[in-house]
Write a protein that binds this DNA or RNA. Structure first.
Lengths: 189, 189
DNA sequence: CCAAAGTCTAAACAAATGTTATCGTTTGGT
DNA sequence: ACCAAACGATAACATTTGTTTAGACTTTGG
């Protein structure tokens, strides 16, 4: 149940079975149905999810109530409203399962315990933060320097399978355009 | 010369004079004139800068040769092509001084030394990565959920002084619009 | 198995944003 | 102090992207 979670940790730091078991004893395992919400805006995030199976999207809702799908996350990825988890401020992101989903739930206590007591706890946190910084930095870079059409082609080359897993209007949203416009771009190509 | 650098570290972790002095012995101090480049695309970044005085911009150049100003950084901030520093890949960012600038230069060796030998080295790296993750996450969030006009007003409220320090075409670029359009938005307001 | 909801495409039109060119003004170098 | 370059505003026009609506097709749930 926690195997892929353990492997993810082991790929980033050196640890031992005892540390891992103690960490896992502070975590839980949770299943979600399609369309379920893992978390919603308003309350301060108290957990980070590690997806062992399934797919979800991260949504931000603007001041006019329009939803923007800004991330997809699937197997073997950590996901949360990590900014507001760190800042201990009310969440702004909605996390919604797009497929039946299974996730390890790391609570704030588990994470704090890891930083305090695991030999390479801080290194683990550093690696995760670095990984997601790089991810976000790429997003920013691409948003500035690529047209929607280029972003679409980039996404196609990186995620050839995503079309089969999520509706196109979410992909359009992810690309920062409307579904109608995405349809147009696909035709033009 | 290294005072603000020391304070920045002390605000994130606990350390002692000896650790700090050893770290600083691995760093250098460098001055740049206005318009000088701190780093340019192509070579693998080997340093992270800490700005003690002045202002710079971070630029990404797209496939058509168009420059996009994607960040400004000033006093008491760390700055680098951090993604490619971490990935050890050729830089994509240009760092250019917009004012006479003074910076502490942390080399890769200094940083690796810190992670290996400072008691809270990894924690420091974690805090920095977390800080910049939050910053980038905000950028992404705002880019998705705010119009250029809203981003302009947001920037005005956060950086009321930036107009006096950088030309408007760089601000327009930062907002993701053309200078002509920014001029229009300012008029409409 | 059917009805309802969701999905994709398409067309016509509207709004936002980009492009180019011009003109004063400011700035920087000598 | 002078001149060339950079800068910011503006207008006219072009292009991109959004909005609305409609229709065909698929999926879903009872």
């Amino acid at each position: 149940m926690f195997d892929s979670f353990k492997n993810a940790i082991l790929s980033l730091i050196q640890t031992d079975q005892q540390e891992l078991d103690q960490l896992i004893s502070l975590c839980s395992f949770q299943k979600f149905r399609k369309n379920d919400f893992l978390s919603q805006p308003g309350k301060v995030p108290q957990e980070v999810f590690f997806i062992s199976k399934g797919l979800l999207r991260v949504v931000v809702t603007d001041s006019k109530g329009v939803e923007h799908t800004i991330h997809f996350a699937s197997e073997n990825q950590f996901v949360a409203d990590y900014s507001n988890f760190l800042l201990q401020q009310p969440a702004m992101y909605t996390l919604q399962a797009l497929e039946p989903l299974e996730a390890v739930v790391m609570t704030r206590q588990a994470i704090d315990w890891g930083y305090q007591f695991m030999k390479e706890g801080d290194k683990f946190g550093r690696k995760v933060a670095e990984f997601y910084f790089v991810y976000q930095d790429n997003r920013v870079k691409n948003y500035y320097s690529r047209t929607p059409k280029e972003r679409y082609e980039l996404m196609e080359s990186i995620f050839p399978q995503i079309h089969n897993r999520v509706p196109q209007h979410m992909i359009a949203s992810y690309l920062g355009i409307t579904p109608v416009h995405l349809s147009r771009l696909k035709k033009e190509r």
